[in-house]
């Protein structure tokens, strides 16, 4: 009988679910609302539908991300540090360092033999995270997904000196009124985030190759700005948002295999997907 493993990654902005056996069978990415439990349920159901599997067929479910405790049908919660490490080791085995730029935090992870051995994390301040760009994009009247491309047209990158999101927004308004070109300002914003993240990462002693994951990795301008700091090209998985969920599913698989090998019973949560919505 085939075994299936699900990974549920509830980030501050996006919720991601993957279902795997030997490889990824189905994946769904949806926005994280204020109601994590209900949403995890819905995204899971969508993924099951895509994979054409009933929930009972899923051998093990691992939840990760900042909303990981709010997944009532998960068998285990594992932090996003371990899950990103596992996901990157699977997708990009040559990577030794991971940079994850999420909506609410950014982190750096050092890998050795496919496992996290050290990490740094910024979750105290919006500067250096996706939220910083979101706020700035709104202020500039640019769509978040257009920021990357737009910044590549920059001729004279504007220096954004403030690393605080609130003050940087004011600075952006000031630059606009001074007549600075939009691409130059956007490039300046990417530069500011890259500087912040690079400063945090240096504590880890960056080793090549470097993989970039999370929503930030989908922004070409930010990728280029980080590469300029690092002095070399980074690796980006095909869908950088799914790394954590893939890692979660794979760690679930490890847990199942380990239990089978040892002949110990599998510690599982009482899961009833349908009833999960009762929590709302």
């Amino acid at each position: 009988m085939s075994q299936y493993f699900a990974g549920v990654d509830i980030g501050s902005t996006m919720t991601k679910v993957v279902i795997m056996n030997q490889s990824v069978l189905a994946s769904v990415i949806g926005p994280t609302g204020p109601e994590h439990r209900k949403l995890a349920n819905r995204v899971m159901e969508e993924a099951l539908e895509k994979a054409k599997l009933p929930f009972e067929e899923i051998t093990y479910v691992v939840a990760t991300g900042y909303g990981r405790i709010n997944v009532p049908f998960a068998d285990k919660q594992i932090t996003e540090i371990s899950c990103h490490a596992k996901g990157v080791a699977y997708l990009l085995p040559e990577a030794r360092t991971v940079i994850d730029i999420g909506g609410q935090d950014s982190k750096g992870i050092k890998l050795k033999d496919g496992r996290a051995v050290d990490f740094v994390m910024n979750d105290k301040c919006a500067a250096g995270t996706g939220r910083f760009l979101e706020v700035a994009a709104e202020e500039l009247g640019v769509k978040l997904e257009d920021m990357g491309k737009l910044s590549l047209e920059a001729r004279n990158t504007v220096r954004i000196s403030n690393t605080c999101t609130v003050f940087a927004t004011q600075e952006v308004v000031g630059k606009l009124s001074e007549g600075a070109a939009l691409p130059d300002i956007v490039a300046g914003l990417h530069e500011a985030i890259a500087t912040r993240i690079y400063g945090m990462l240096r504590r880890l002693k960056i080793e090549r190759e470097v993989a970039l994951t999370g929503g930030g990795a989908k922004n070409i301008g930010l990728v280029r700005a980080l590469e300029a700091k690092l002095g070399f090209a980074v690796l980006v998985p095909p869908e950088p948002l799914l790394t954590g969920a893939i890692g979660a599913a794979l760690l679930g698989k490890d847990i199942v295999k380990e239990a089978e090998k040892k002949g110990t019973p599998l510690p599982r949560a009482e899961r009833r997907l349908q009833e999960a919505t009762l929590f709302t």
């Binding site: 932090t79 540090i81 371990s82 496992r115 996290a116 050290d118 990490f119 994390m121 979750d123």
Partner: peptide
């Protein structure tokens, strides 16, 4: 409370 994820990740790293 904000330190929880870091502590959990550190313990996972020690456990593995």
């Amino acid at each position: 409370g904000r330190l929880r994820t870091r502590i959990q990740a550190f313990l996972e790293l020690l456990g593995s």
